[in-house]
Every structure is written in structure tokens, then in C-alpha cells.
């Protein structure tokens, strides 16, 4: 509230003083420093120098550097994401290949099992057939044998009967009977 009159007052005295003494009055009490025009040129000059240097540093060094850092990081992240995607695709492909391989192996194993089962079955069938044939042959042979023996035996029965009859007749009747007669008699009886 007391600033304005004080400023106005000091402004007047300030002008008077600067004309006489030049500098050294800004420290004088009572004036409001921000509105003291005596040192405006100094502030403008030093602001221009310092801000100018800062602007140059920012535009030539700092902004390109930080921008470069951020861009590098951005690129690097994009690259890494691409790499990760590529690796994922590779591993997906590897998994698919593995599944394929596994399915193939399983099918092959099935095939082998089926073929070997069929082969074994065929072999055992052949074996059995061979054995059955051999057995049948033996059976037939022995049947033939039996029939032959039976026929021979039967053929011998006549001889035995005639011999027996001849012996009986000779013993009982004391006479001589020819073999031919006896045979005829036996044949008659057997008939």
C-alpha cells in the first residue's frame, strides 16, 4: 500500500540522483528495487548474455543429446520387441515340428506293431497248418497200416481155420484130408 507513493517519490529522486552521481544510488533505502529503471540496462544485458548462452547450449548440445538418448532407447526397445517376436515364432515352429515328429513316430510305431502282429499270426497259422498236415498224414498212414494189418489178419484167419480143421479131421477121423478139400470146406462154412 505504501509502495506506490514510495516508488513515485524515489523515482523522482532517483532520476535526479542518477543524473548527478551516476551509480551507487540503487542501494539507497526507500525505493522499490524492481521498479528502479537505473539498472534495467544492466539486467537486460546480463539476461541476454546468460539466457543466450543457455539457449545455445540447449539447442546445440542438450536437446539433441537427450532427444538422441530417448530415440536410441525407443529404437532399442522396438528392436528387442521384434527380436522377441522372431524368437517366439521360431520356438512356435520348433514346437510344431516336434509335435509333427511325435505324431509320425507314433504312427510308425503303430504300423510296426500291426505288421509284426500280422506277420506273427501268419507264421503261426502256417506252422499250425504244417503240423496239422503232418498229423493228418500220420493218421492216414496209421489207418492204412491198421487196414493192411487187419486185411492180412483176416486173410490168415482162413489159413488158420483150414489148418485147424485139417488137424481136427486127422485127429478125429484118422484119415488123410487134402488141403484143397479142407480149404473148400472152410470156405463153405465161412460163407
Amino acid at each position: 500500500m505504501f509502495v506506490t507513493p514510495a516508488y513515485a517519490e524515489s523515482h523522482a529522486t532517483q532520476n535526479a540522483n542518477t543524473e548527478v552521481a551516476g551509480h551507487g544510488e540503487a542501494q539507497g533505502g526507500g525505493s522499490f528495487p524492481p521498479f528502479d529503471p537505473g539498472l534495467y540496462p544492466s539486467q537486460l544485458l546480463w539476461l541476454a548474455i546468460t539466457f543466450g548462452i543457455f539457449y545455445l547450449l540447449v539447442s546445440k548440445v542438450i536437446a539433441p543429446r537427450i532427444g538422441g538418448i530417448l530415440e536410441d532407447r525407443h529404437d532399442r526397445i522396438a528392436e528387442d520387441l521384434d527380436e522377441a517376436n522372431r524368437l517366439k515364432e521360431e520356438s512356435d515352429a520348433a514346437v510344431a515340428a516336434y509335435e509333427q515328429e511325435l505324431a509320425d513316430a507314433r504312427r510308425k510305431a503303430n504300423e510296426i506293431a500291426t505288421t509284426s502282429r500280422e506277420k506273427a499270426k501268419a507264421e503261426s497259422d502256417a506252422e499250425r497248418a504244417k503240423h496239422e498236415e503232418a498229423l493228418n498224414k500220420k493218421l492216414a498212414e496209421s489207418e492204412a497200416n491198421v487196414a493192411a494189418v487187419k486185411a492180412k489178419a483176416l486173410a490168415e484167419v482162413d489159413g488158420i481155420a483150414s489148418d485147424t480143421a485139417q488137424a481136427i479131421v486127422e485127429t478125429l477121423l484118422g484119415g488123410k484130408v487134402t488141403k484143397a478139400e479142407v480149404n473148400a470146406a472152410v470156405r463153405d462154412v465161412v460163407k
Binding site: 551516476g22 551509480h23 539498472l39 544485458l45 547450449l57
Partner: peptide, 28 residues
């Protein structure tokens, strides 16, 4: 309050290096 640390005067204008100038340099 501004105080002149290094008084400089060019062509009748006061371009002194003040405490404000010092802190402008410090800021930069």
C-alpha cells in the same frame, strides 16, 4: 535490492555486474 558487484558503465548506461547478474549466471 540490487547491488553492483562489478560496476561497468558504457556510453552513460549502467551495465554493472550485479547480484542479479550473478544469479543469472548461476542459473545458467
Amino acid at each position: 535490492q540490487l547491488s553492483r558487484l562489478v560496476p561497468i558503465e558504457i556510453g552513460g548506461m549502467d551495465f554493472s555486474f550485479t547480484n542479479s547478474s550473478l544469479f543469472m549466471v548461476a542459473t545458467t
